[in-house]
């Protein structure tokens, strides 16, 4: 396998979801460290060259992705508008991501509002999954984030989540939507 790098590149290219080192190693009958070294080399090459995409490490695998600075051009082709999550969805997702495994009651206590609808949407979008049932009276479902969550947010694993900031004071930078709301308030 003289052109091992090209072969590995091809395998990543044809993979629908981030392809894992183990999958490539098995397909090529190679040792994992060997594959890992080739992938890292490819990553570096794409990073250095000024190409339209780069090789990224997400959800425990590797995937070619375009660069953020080209987002607008890509969207022009697909005529897609950038999607936006509601604040309720983001808050719920953040709580699940950082506190998993959590029950719906945990989420609702933290947010102070009913979160059943948001939770269902997140399940439908496969960003959140049911991990099982908690061994307490009522056996409530417990939830956690899915592989799709890692892929969407470009995380390799949960340890890549930004560290939670602890507050002992009120933070003065307002949530985005409140800033927006203050902009068009009526006198």
């Amino acid at each position: 396998m003289d052109d091992l790098k090209a072969i590995v590149e091809a395998l990543v290219f044809v993979s629908e979801s981030p392809v894992k080192i183990e999958q490539i190693a098995e397909a090529l009958d190679l040792e994992k460290p060997k594959v890992s070294a080739v992938l890292l080399e490819l990553c570096r090459e794409y990073e250095g060259n000024d190409r339209g995409f780069e090789l990224q490490r997400v959800a425990g695998g590797y995937q070619f992705r375009t660069r953020a600075r080209h987002a607008e051009w890509v969207r022009r082709l697909s005529r897609a508008k950038p999607f936006r999550f509601s604040r309720a969805a983001m808050e719920t997702l953040a709580i699940i991501a950082y506190r998993q495994p959590v029950t719906r009651a945990d989420i609702e206590y933290l947010r102070g509002v009913d979160s059943g609808g948001v939770l269902k949407t997140l399940l439908d979008k496969r960003l959140v999954r049911i991990l099982g049932k908690k061994d307490i009276p009522g056996r409530p479902m417990i939830y956690g984030t899915s592989r799709g969550f890692l892929e969407l947010f470009g995380l390799n694993d949960l340890s890549g989540l930004p560290t939670l900031k602890e507050f002992d004071q009120l933070s003065l930078d307002l949530p985005l939507s409140e800033v927006a709301a203050d902009g068009n308030q009526t006198p």
């Binding site: 990224q56 997400v58 995937q63 070619f64 992705r65 375009t66 660069r67 953020a68 987002a71 890509v74 950038p82 999607f83 999550f85 604040r87 983001m90 808050e91 997702l93 953040a94 709580i95 991501a97 950082y98 206590y109 933290l110 947010r111 102070g112 892929e151 969407l152 947010f153 470009g154 930004p162 939670l164 900031k165 602890e166 507050f167 002992d168 009120l170 933070s171 949530p175 985005l176």
Partner: peptide, 27 residues
Amino acid sequence: RLLEYQKYQAAARELDERELLGRELFA
């Protein structure tokens, strides 16, 4: 509860500011 809630509001904002697949990045 207020401080705890504020913590997750901030985390939600931070998550939302990431480069998302299908929004800023495409595969």
